[in-house]
Every structure is written in C-alpha cells, then in structure tokens.
Design a protein around this nucleic acid. Structure first.
Lengths: 175, 175
DNA sequence: TCCTATAGCTTAGTATTCTAAGTATATAGG
DNA sequence: CCTATATACTTAGAATACTAAGCTATAGGA
C-alpha cells in the first residue's frame, strides 16, 4: 500500500466494519437487496407473463389497483420511477389495453391514468401471484421474522432517503 | 366481483396474508428490496463516478478484488449477472483500462479476467465508499439488527433460489 | 397585466440488463 | 475416430431505466 493511501484506509476505522468486510458481496446490503429483488421479480414475471403482464408493467398496475385515476406524476412517485420511465411504460400499458389516459380542462398539464375494466379484473388473478411468491420467499420464517425483515428494510430506505434529500438540498444551494 | 372469480380469491386464504395485503407495495418484500437496491446503488455511484466507475462496473471490480484471474463465466455467476451482461460490462471495463483478458492453450474456450494495476489500486479508494454508504443505510440500527437484516435477506435469497432450481429441473425434464 | 418561475409531461440519447440463438472448443460414448 | 453433447463465450434484439433538455400550461409576484 502506498503511503498516501493510509489516509483513506484510516477513515474506515470508525465504521461498523472495516471496508474489506463489504468487499464480500454477501455482507453488502446493496448486493443482497439486488439479488432479492431480481429473484423475486423473475419468479413473479414467469407467472404474470401468462397474462401478458411484464414485471415492469405489474408495478404500475399494482399501484393503480390501489389508487385509480391519479396523475402520471403521482404514479411515478408512488412506483418509484422517474417520469420518462413512466411515459414509456404507460405507452406500453395503453397499447396493451390496460390503461386509458384522460385530460381535464381544469389543469391542462395533467394527465390522469385510469385502468380499463380488463386491467381491473386482472387484480383477482395477479394479486394472488404476488402473494404466492411472498409465501415462497418467506418459507420457513415466522410471521415475526417477516415483519422484522420488512421493518428493517423500511428503516434502511428511510436512512438512504434522508441522505438523498440532504444531497438534493446541497445541490439546490449550489444552483 | 364476478362469481367465477371466487375460486381465485379463495386460494389466498392459505397465505400468511390475503393477496390484497401485498397490493400495498410497502408490504411487498420485492418492492422494498428494489427500493433498497436502487437507493443504495445511486448513492454509491454518485461517489464512484468521480473515479469513472459506474455502479455496474463497481460490481465486477468488487468481485475481482476478491478473486483476480477467474474466468468470465465464474465472474458472471459470482456477480449474479447473465453472461451477455458480463460480455458488455467487460468490454467497457477493458476499454476503460480496468481489466485485461487472457486466454490459455489449456482450454481455448476460457477467458481469464485480470485487474490492471490501476484497478487494483482503486480498491483502496472505492471499498471505503461502499462502507460509507453502509453506515448511512444502517444509521440508528444496532449491530445485531444489521446482522438480522442480512441473515433474513440471505434466507429469502435461498428460498427463491430453491424455487428457481426446482423450476429449472422441471423444464429440463420437459426438454 | 406581464414576466418569470414552476409544474407536468415528452423527446432524445444512453446504460444496463435480459432472452434466444449462434460459434468455437472440448469431452464422452459407440 | 467420429459424432453427439456440453461448455465458454458472443451476437442480436428487446425491455427497462436513467439523465439532460425540451415543450406547454399554470402560478405568483412586480
């Protein structure tokens, strides 16, 4: 190790674990979350594709089952996607006959998204598929363990969101 | 709800929660994992980009810091990407001067991947960045809670991998 | 009122990842 | 030794997601 590098290495001493610990992906929450997400998503898609619903589309449908008729922007936020992603996804959903878009005279910028009757009915078929993957994912775990996992993940999300907000404020100041 | 639909709805009764429960993304492990992964990844990339390393590249570098000189296929498996993804990523890494590829006469199909001295040195700078995001992500959590989170995620991964293997065997039988 | 800033959506271009199918090399059974 | 199968990698094409930069429409002061 070159001499100057120690300054960087030293910084890790205040951490929960030294930096080397996280070099092993198995210890990295980011890596573990990625694998959980991908495996979950692939298994779910395998089922939903039978109804011509991709994993990406599923995410939008799920939110619309919860709140039909929200604006495109609101939908983006809830689903956790950026707006251009939503534009493309909605194009696909509209073409596939899952949603319709409606404008009002009230505020002509806004576009409201509505499920078609067909997409509404799909909830009865697709929602149980998600529940099923959940069952598989949490096999052998107690209800308490599942709740612990969910609440710890939510806390991580909150922590990361705080940091992201902090950085956003900083860059606003600069701008 | 149409009459015939009850057959599907009924199926949910044996689950930990009814299907409607998972319609709320906040209760879905898949959704939570996606948000953790994306937030984590974005914050990390913000730091690594200063060294011209994207989030995708970081994943490959991390594995190579752990095991230099493995084959392309082994690398794919360890990182959890499909091979075509690895091909593209390695092209970028090679172009950027982070890795070199080497063939042997021993088995001319295999390509071994080696870090350049520059990429090796980067570990000292980049590994602490990951540790730092980890600190942020787990702020306010005890060491025990962090370990619980990791081990629960590993169990979910194992469960989903079991299921995926089961399906692979089934489709092998068919083929 | 008018001018500027903001909000909502779109377009363009790029990166990352996947599946399916193809090529080249190695291995194993007849 | 030849053919079938398996392994390692590549190519092609598509889906998903992003950033940056645009367009309208609205809102909020001067």
């Amino acid at each position: 190790m070159a001499e100057g590098d120690w300054k960087l290495a030293k910084k890790t001493q205040s951490y929960r674990h030294p930096a080397e610990f996280y070099t092993n992906p198995e210890n990295s929450i980011g890596y573990l979350a990625r694998v959980v997400f991908r495996s979950f998503s692939r298994l779910l898609e395998r089922r939903t594709l039978a109804y011509d619903v991709s994993a990406g589309q599923w995410r939008f449908l799920r939110q619309l089952w919860l709140e039909d008729g929200i604006t495109q922007r609101e939908l983006s936020e809830r689903v956790g996607m950026r707006e251009p992603t939503t534009v493309v996804a909605l194009k696909g959903l509209e073409k596939a006959g899952f949603i319709t878009r409606r404008k009002t005279e009230d505020d002509r910028r806004k576009t409201f998204i509505f499920l078609t009757p067909h997409a509404k009915k799909l909830e009865l078929t697709l929602a149980p598929m998600n529940a099923e993957i959940h069952e598989i994912a949490t096999r052998g775990m107690t209800d308490e363990e599942v709740e612990t996992l969910q609440s710890l993940m939510r806390r991580v999300i909150e922590n990361l969101a705080d940091e992201t907000r902090k950085l956003a404020v900083l860059s606003d100041v600069k701008a």
